[in-house]
Amino acid sequence: GLEHMADEEKLPPGWEKRMSRSSGRVYYFNHITNASQWERPSG
């Protein structure tokens, strides 16, 4: 619920959580730099 939404908002600017269609794993994508990574971004 609300706790999940608050957790999402802690991601650094530009980052969003996405799911890989090929593997079904969650990864993180930065739409500003077009960077993507499996680890949760910090800072």
Score class of each variant (00 low, 15 high):
residue 1 G to W: 11
residue 1 G to Y: 12
residue 1 G to F: 12
residue 2 L to I: 13
residue 2 L to Y: 14
residue 2 L to G: 14
residue 2 L to K: 12
residue 2 L to V: 14
residue 3 E to N: 11
residue 3 E to V: 13
residue 3 E to R: 08
residue 3 E to G: 11
residue 3 E to I: 12
residue 3 E to A: 13
residue 4 H to D: 14
residue 4 H to E: 13
residue 4 H to Q: 11
residue 4 H to I: 13
residue 4 H to V: 13
residue 4 H to Y: 10
residue 5 M to W: 12
residue 5 M to Q: 12
residue 5 M to V: 13
residue 5 M to R: 08
residue 5 M to G: 12
residue 5 M to K: 10
residue 5 M to H: 12
residue 5 M to Y: 11
residue 5 M to N: 13
residue 5 M to S: 12
residue 6 A to M: 10
residue 6 A to F: 11
residue 6 A to L: 12
residue 6 A to R: 11
residue 6 A to Q: 12
residue 7 D to M: 09
residue 7 D to Q: 10
residue 7 D to K: 07
residue 7 D to F: 07
residue 7 D to E: 11
residue 7 D to I: 10
residue 7 D to L: 09
residue 7 D to A: 10
residue 7 D to G: 10
residue 7 D to S: 10
residue 8 E to Q: 10
residue 8 E to K: 08
residue 8 E to R: 07
residue 8 E to G: 09
residue 8 E to P: 09
residue 9 E to R: 06
residue 9 E to H: 07
residue 9 E to M: 08
residue 9 E to V: 06
residue 9 E to Q: 08
residue 10 K to F: 10
residue 10 K to S: 14
residue 10 K to V: 12
residue 10 K to Q: 14
residue 10 K to G: 12
residue 10 K to A: 15
residue 11 L to C: 03
residue 11 L to G: 00
residue 11 L to W: 02
residue 11 L to D: 15
residue 12 P to I: 01
residue 12 P to K: 01
residue 12 P to L: 03
residue 12 P to Y: 02
residue 12 P to A: 03
residue 12 P to Q: 02
residue 12 P to D: 02
residue 12 P to H: 02
residue 13 P to T: 07
residue 13 P to W: 11
residue 13 P to G: 05
residue 13 P to K: 06
residue 13 P to V: 08
residue 13 P to M: 08
residue 13 P to C: 15
residue 13 P to H: 09
residue 14 G to I: 01
residue 14 G to Y: 06
residue 14 G to A: 03
residue 14 G to L: 02
residue 14 G to N: 06
residue 14 G to V: 01
residue 15 W to K: 01
residue 15 W to E: 00
residue 15 W to F: 01
residue 15 W to S: 00
residue 15 W to M: 00
residue 16 E to Y: 05
residue 16 E to G: 04
residue 16 E to A: 05
residue 16 E to R: 05
residue 16 E to F: 05
residue 16 E to W: 04
residue 16 E to P: 00
residue 17 K to P: 04
residue 17 K to F: 04
residue 17 K to V: 09
residue 17 K to M: 12
residue 17 K to Q: 09
residue 17 K to H: 03
residue 18 R to A: 03
residue 18 R to M: 06
residue 18 R to F: 05
residue 18 R to H: 04
residue 18 R to L: 06
residue 18 R to I: 06
residue 18 R to P: 00
residue 18 R to S: 03
residue 18 R to N: 02
residue 18 R to E: 01
residue 19 M to E: 07
residue 19 M to Y: 15
residue 19 M to I: 15
residue 19 M to Q: 09
residue 19 M to H: 10
residue 19 M to R: 14
residue 19 M to S: 07
residue 19 M to F: 15
residue 21 R to V: 14
residue 21 R to K: 14
residue 21 R to F: 11
residue 21 R to A: 15
residue 21 R to P: 15
residue 21 R to W: 09
residue 22 S to E: 09
residue 22 S to Y: 11
residue 22 S to K: 15
residue 22 S to N: 11
residue 22 S to D: 10
residue 22 S to V: 14
residue 22 S to M: 09
residue 22 S to T: 14
residue 22 S to A: 12
residue 22 S to L: 12
residue 23 S to M: 07
residue 23 S to Y: 07
residue 23 S to P: 05
residue 23 S to I: 05
residue 23 S to E: 08
residue 23 S to R: 06
residue 23 S to L: 10
residue 24 G to A: 05
residue 24 G to S: 06
residue 24 G to F: 04
residue 24 G to D: 05
residue 25 R to L: 07
residue 25 R to V: 05
residue 25 R to T: 05
residue 25 R to S: 04
residue 25 R to K: 09
residue 25 R to W: 05
residue 25 R to P: 02
residue 26 V to S: 05
residue 26 V to W: 13
residue 26 V to H: 07
residue 26 V to L: 06
residue 26 V to Y: 11
residue 26 V to G: 02
residue 27 Y to D: 00
residue 27 Y to E: 02
residue 27 Y to I: 03
residue 27 Y to R: 01
residue 27 Y to H: 02
residue 28 Y to A: 00
residue 28 Y to K: 00
residue 28 Y to L: 00
residue 28 Y to M: 00
residue 29 F to S: 01
residue 29 F to R: 03
residue 29 F to D: 00
residue 29 F to Q: 01
residue 29 F to V: 05
residue 29 F to P: 00
residue 29 F to A: 02
residue 30 N to W: 01
residue 30 N to G: 00
residue 30 N to K: 00
residue 30 N to L: 02
residue 30 N to Y: 04
residue 30 N to F: 03
residue 30 N to Q: 02
residue 31 H to A: 11
residue 31 H to Y: 14
residue 31 H to K: 12
residue 31 H to T: 15
residue 31 H to P: 07
residue 31 H to S: 13
residue 31 H to I: 15
residue 32 I to G: 04
residue 32 I to L: 11
residue 32 I to H: 10
residue 32 I to M: 08
residue 33 T to K: 04
residue 33 T to R: 03
residue 33 T to E: 04
residue 33 T to M: 04
residue 33 T to L: 06
residue 33 T to Y: 05
residue 33 T to Q: 03
residue 34 N to C: 15
residue 34 N to D: 04
residue 34 N to M: 12
residue 34 N to Y: 09
residue 35 A to W: 10
residue 35 A to D: 06
residue 35 A to S: 11
residue 35 A to E: 14
residue 36 S to M: 15
residue 36 S to A: 13
residue 36 S to R: 15
residue 36 S to P: 02
residue 36 S to F: 15
residue 37 Q to S: 07
residue 37 Q to V: 04
residue 37 Q to P: 00
residue 37 Q to Y: 03
residue 37 Q to W: 03
residue 38 W to I: 06
residue 38 W to G: 03
residue 38 W to Y: 09
residue 39 E to V: 07
residue 39 E to M: 07
residue 39 E to F: 07
residue 40 R to L: 06
residue 40 R to H: 09
residue 40 R to C: 10
residue 40 R to M: 07
residue 40 R to I: 08
residue 40 R to A: 07
residue 41 P to K: 02
residue 41 P to A: 02
residue 41 P to Q: 00
residue 41 P to G: 02
residue 41 P to H: 00
residue 41 P to D: 01
residue 41 P to L: 02
residue 41 P to V: 02
residue 41 P to N: 02
residue 42 S to Y: 10
residue 42 S to H: 11
residue 42 S to N: 12
residue 42 S to F: 10
residue 42 S to L: 09
residue 42 S to W: 10
residue 42 S to K: 10
residue 42 S to G: 11
residue 43 G to T: 11
residue 43 G to V: 12
residue 43 G to A: 13
residue 43 G to H: 10
residue 43 G to N: 11
residue 43 G to P: 11
residue 43 G to K: 10
